Computed example of a mutant assay.
Amino acid sequence: MSKRVTLAQGAELVRNGGVIAYATEAVFGLGCDPDNRDAVMRLLAIKQRPVEKGLILLAADFDQLRPYVDESALSAAQLSRMFDSWPGPFTWVVPAKPGVPDWISGKFDSIAVRVTAHPEAAQLARLFGKPLISTSANLSGQEPGRSVSEVQSCLAGLLDGVVDSTTGAALSPSTIRDALSGEVLRGT
């Protein structure tokens, strides 16, 4: 069984290449260091998710996302629309900076980013010092875990730790929108 850990222990596990689960606005997410290829590939193997799909980066604030986002490809109005939705359960697909690894972007020249309103997830990103990978804590095609015990049950022994935290009040995973077009890609 994956052990329960504190926020500080979770950040340390991620810093050392580990894969953890942590609470977000609606469900638990799987997380790791987005710049550690081995950790991301392990996370994808645990989830049984193809690398081509790309992954979400979850951050405490936009400054943490700046190394990954090509801000010059977004207009002031597009940036404003994105900033107005944050912090919150809104993920935006934005142009990726050149050099962003394909294990984050998948087959796309864009990446999905979110500034979370979940206090514990934001604190985890602050303790880690940069964004975390965020993908629902479940095997592909199964329901995402909404509690520590559900995550421990469905992903028993596969994770380095499950942060002892509680999901927010949202009932469904984050809305995903295209920052260039404004189109809703998932959710409402």
Rank of each mutant, 00 (worst) to 15 (best):
D33R: 05
D33G: 05
P34N: 13
P34M: 06
P34C: 11
P34H: 05
N36Y: 06
N36V: 00
N36F: 02
N36G: 07
R37Q: 13
R37T: 07
R37L: 03
D38Y: 03
D38F: 06
D38R: 11
D38Q: 12
D38I: 01
D38K: 08
A39S: 08
A39C: 04
V40Y: 01
V40G: 05
V40P: 06
V40T: 10
V40D: 04
M41E: 15
M41L: 15
M41A: 12
M41D: 14
R42S: 12
R42N: 09
R42Q: 11
R42Y: 09
R42H: 15
R42K: 14
L43G: 05
L43Q: 08
L43V: 05
L43K: 04
L44K: 00
A45C: 10
I46Y: 06
I46T: 06
K47G: 09
K47R: 10
Q48K: 14
Q48L: 07
Q48F: 04
Q48N: 14
Q48S: 09
Q48T: 14
R49D: 09
R49G: 05
R49V: 05
R49C: 11
R49F: 01
P50N: 14
P50I: 13
P50A: 12
P50D: 15
V51A: 15
V51F: 00
V51T: 05
V51I: 07
E52P: 10
E52N: 12
E52G: 09
K53V: 01
K53W: 06
G54T: 01
G54M: 00
L55E: 15
L55H: 11
I56Y: 03
I56K: 00
L57R: 00
L57Y: 01
L58M: 14
L58E: 11
L58P: 13
A59T: 01
A59Y: 06
A59G: 12
A60R: 09
A60S: 13
D61V: 00
D61W: 00
D61F: 01
F62K: 07
F62W: 08
F62M: 15
F62G: 13
D63N: 15
D63G: 15
D63V: 14
D63Y: 12
D63Q: 13
Q64P: 02
Q64D: 07
Q64T: 07
Q64N: 09
L65E: 06
L65V: 01
L65S: 06
L65I: 01
L65H: 00
R66W: 10
R66V: 14
R66G: 14
R66P: 12
P67C: 06
P67L: 02
P67F: 04
Y68T: 01
Y68H: 02
Y68C: 10
V69D: 12
V69G: 12
V69H: 09
V69Q: 09
D70W: 00
D70R: 04
D70A: 08
D70H: 01
D70E: 15
E71F: 13
E71L: 08
E71G: 10
E71R: 10
S72Y: 04
S72F: 01
S72W: 08
S72R: 11
A73Q: 11
A73M: 07
A73H: 08
A73P: 04
